[in-house]
Design a protein around this nucleic acid. Sequence first.
DNA 1: GTTGATGTAAGATAAATTCTTACGTTATAA
DNA 2: TTATAACGTAAGAATTTATCTTACATCAAC
Lengths: 221, 221
Amino acid sequence: MRSKIKIIVADDHAVLRAGLKLLLNNETDFIVVGEASDGEDVLTLLEKTNADVLIIDLSMPNMGGLECIKEIKSRGYPIKILVLTMYEDEQYIKEAMRSGALGYVEKHAVDTELFIAVKAVHMGQRYLNPHNSQLLLNSLLTTTPKENADNPYTLLSPREREVLKYIVRGYSMSQIGKMLCLSVKTVDTYKTRMMEKLGLTKKSQLVDYALKYDLLPAKSE
Amino acid sequence: MRSKIKIIVADDHAVLRAGLKLLLNNETDFIVVGEASDGEDVLTLLEKTNADVLIIDLSMPNMGGLECIKEIKSRGYPIKILVLTMYEDEQYIKEAMRSGALGYVEKHAVDTELFIAVKAVHMGQRYLNPHNSQLLLNSLLTTTPKENADNPYTLLSPREREVLKYIVRGYSMSQIGKMLCLSVKTVDTYKTRMMEKLGLTKKSQLVDYALKYDLLPAKSE
DNA sequence: GTTGATGTAAGATAAATTCTTACGTTATAA
DNA sequence: TTATAACGTAAGAATTTATCTTACATCAAC
């Protein structure tokens, strides 16, 4: 008989935790080795407990689930994360999956779904029910290109856009001037004109604008 | 009795086209109003025929499916596109969905799945079977998160990261100071320390760093 | 053939950044 | 249990940068 999947349950509702624990321990494949009531608890637990899977709620006091997931990832714990939550919200799901969760199960799911999900993430696979998949897909796919009428490609001149890209990247006027073989003054003029055109007053707004219209530099990965 | 869903079938295999046509016409909800054997045919057909849904294969001579989908979109035809293909390939699915297809069905799917898919895309909904959803999700999600050991969450202090976020957004030292209720000097210190820690000398490098590790502000859409 | 958008730039002033140095508080390691 | 390093905080002086204004030539469009 192979060893059981060691699970930590994190949820601020003690009753739910207890229920879950019973439910899971009742299965031959699982064993709950720890409980936490908030994100900080989880982090503490992870240091002394060696578990395979973390079942975590997103809404908890102190340190919320998302933050906790990110922290776990940044600290490099190899534990697999399954989000168990009430919300069926694209934004949440997306954010959780992006943060490092492998699966997402709703609290009103039947227990067998939870079991399947735990086993899936334990093997390193993603788990999402079909409905969530559709939701997430939607949100992932619809977030791509902007097609706004007044986007920078129509409002700003080519030279201005070029300069804007450097500004967004954090270069100073003088650096940009050097790179583009222009006088600092010229670069300054472009910047001023862009702000006039767009009705902006602060550089940060320019950055936001560029961000909004995907003028971001390609991520250097 | 409400009107039938008008369908165009595009596939370079005539037998398959004929089979599909029979299959669809046999259903009370559908009627095949046109057939095309390649992408160019489709474009020609679209000008003279008024159909609701296009069932299209990706691999066709002359103009392939992907190219054809893009062309349809760029010309602004309102027809809903359902990809019907042999390939179960993440890349293809992703590309097709990104290009403007609403659904994706494999040729070895049962007919009822095809019917469901046609009805779904006709209503403007996405259709993907659960398996494809998982595949696509995987491919969409795995292109994002960094899990580097020396990412900002371990190297930089919380306060430093906070300041970094504002720097990336294009705020000036003094603006950040105001927002965070800190002296400009303090903000400056954080920035200096970050650059020391990361071995950087220019602000633009800091921005690149933040970009690389997804410290980007959420896109304000 | 004037108007408007664009690419280019300088001078003077005002503002922001950088460099250095410093200090109390926690962890943390010796 | 005391060093020691990391962190959050900040000031003064020196320097760099940005800003504001003004200017001009070109090319397209009207």
